[in-house]
Design a protein around this nucleic acid. Sequence first.
DNA 1: CGGCGCATGTAACTTGTTACATGATTCC
DNA 2: GGAATCATGTAACAAGTTACATGCGCCG
Lengths: 192, 192
Amino acid sequence: MRQTDYVILGLLAEQPLSGYQIKKLVDIRFKFFWSESFGQIFPALKSLAAEGLAEECAQEHTGGRAAKTYQITPAGREALVAWLGQPVEKESLRLEILLKTYFSNYAAPEVMLGHLAAFEQSHAQQLHILGLFQKELERIPDDDENHREVLRVIDFGQKVNMAYLDWCRETRDYFEQKQARLREAQDQPDKK
Amino acid sequence: MRQTDYVILGLLAEQPLSGYQIKKLVDIRFKFFWSESFGQIFPALKSLAAEGLAEECAQEHTGGRAAKTYQITPAGREALVAWLGQPVEKESLRLEILLKTYFSNYAAPEVMLGHLAAFEQSHAQQLHILGLFQKELERIPDDDENHREVLRVIDFGQKVNMAYLDWCRETRDYFEQKQARLREAQDQPDKK
DNA sequence: CGGCGCATGTAACTTGTTACATGATTCC
DNA sequence: GGAATCATGTAACAAGTTACATGCGCCG
């Protein structure tokens, strides 16, 4: 069983969904810490159905092609709970910007300033979206009784993105100073 | 050209290295934001040599099998600088613990408390190691003139890991309270 | 009827991990 | 000579992305 399978089971545990809807939910709700593509979701749904952890239900079609909707089975719920109890094993972080920062003495400070601006903008945006989610969750009724847990996840995103932005500002300052130092050295090559 | 190629070029830009040494450096220096395996490094070194971006030099052997050492070529340096100037494109974060937190209303609070303890311990450890690196860097002479950039990378790790630990503590509190609520409800099932 | 939007599905590719086979040296 | 250590290399697998092919209904 892949991680994708459990993501799907978790979402189906709340309500029946189609592959397309699952993709949209993952893109919105898990955006800052997870992703899935169609190439993973559709095969996973098929295998979940083959193993009896999910089953096809009604074919709704609200405009456009009919959507194959799946619902979770009791065995699927058991599998989900069993997975929740297993130790967390996957944690991965890959940040090209840190690689470039590490090697940045081979490039001009301007280069890093550009990368930092893009990074900062993207994470400020993410933080903004998380804030909207938080307000939305606090506003609507907690029918599934999972709002508090979801808020914990959102809080993680907020803390981490704020840390990213802090780092951005400090690092921007650093490269701006470096740039100023270099300019000075160029303008007055004799002094020292 | 893969990301692995640039990681290798960046490390070779400082000094000639063997595949084995590269792996060790990545494991130590980039541990908290990057990883590479032998299965990526050795083929990458071969292809870098084929493209003339790196070349084999002396076969040193300091105990054990002879190490094939590679050094960067001028073309390799150019490729590295060109990559540094390209926009940052890869940023990925995958945290199973957030997935489990999101779905945690299907499990007992104890389960999450266990996961949180492991997560907290692992990141406290990482933070500790980053502190050691920082002190080490501030102590030794900055021969390659890249200490300040490396310290920016370390600072990122420290900020992010501190954010993780803050979240851990708050989330631990939340699940402990939830646990207490459940216990209370079980002890006095009549009240309300 | 043509294009757009919703939706499913797959094949090809890229990337990354794991496990294994091998080789050479040192130390006991 | 055997274990430990340092080191290279590969094959098999697992995971993940991308691009494409298809289908259907609606709207102008």
